[in-house]
Amino acid sequence: MAEPDVLERLHQRILRTFLESGHAPTYLDLARAEGVSPEDARLALRDLMAAIPGCWQHPGTDHIVAYAPFNNLPTWHRITVGGEQKWTALCGFDALQVTHLFRGQKIQVDSNCLDCGESVQVRMRDGEVLDIDPPEAVAHSNLPLARWFDDFAVT
C-alpha cells in the first residue's frame, strides 16, 4: 500500500487535472509530476482507486474511467462552467456534486432524460440549486444504496 501522503498528493493531482483540463491524468503524468518511477505511480494509483468510492479504471488497463464526481469518458451528464462545457459527470447524482469543486462559480448541468431523450438542466452555485428546467425534474436511483457499489455504472 502506498504511503498516505502519496495517496493524498495523487488525489489532489487527479482532481485538479480534471478541473483544469476536463480529463484525467495518466499514471505517467502522475509519475512525472510527482518525480517517482512510472511503476511506483501505477501501483499507488491502483491503491488510490481502490480507496475512494466512485472511482475505477478501465478493466485490464491503468486508465482512469471514473474519478467521482467526474468521468473520463463521455456521459449524458455534461457540465458547463464559465461558458466552457468540458467536464463530464459520472452520473446524475455526481453531476449535482460537481458544484462543490468550483467554489463561488455558477455551474450548469446539461443532462438528458432516459425516457424521452429531452434536456434536463440544473444551474447551481456552491451546492445551492438556482434553477431547474423543467421545474418538475427528478433524480432517480434504480438500485438501493446497499447495491450502489455492485455495479456503480448501472445504478
Binding site: 446524475g92 432524460c113 432516459l114 425516457d115 424521452c116 418538475e136
Partner: peptide, 24 residues
Amino acid sequence: MNLFRSEEHVRRWAKFDPESTHGI
C-alpha cells in the same frame, strides 16, 4: 443514477425497476 424530466418519465423508462420507487 439519472435525471428525468418528471416522475412520470422515470416510471415510463424502459429500464425502470418498480422496486426503485423510493429512489425517485
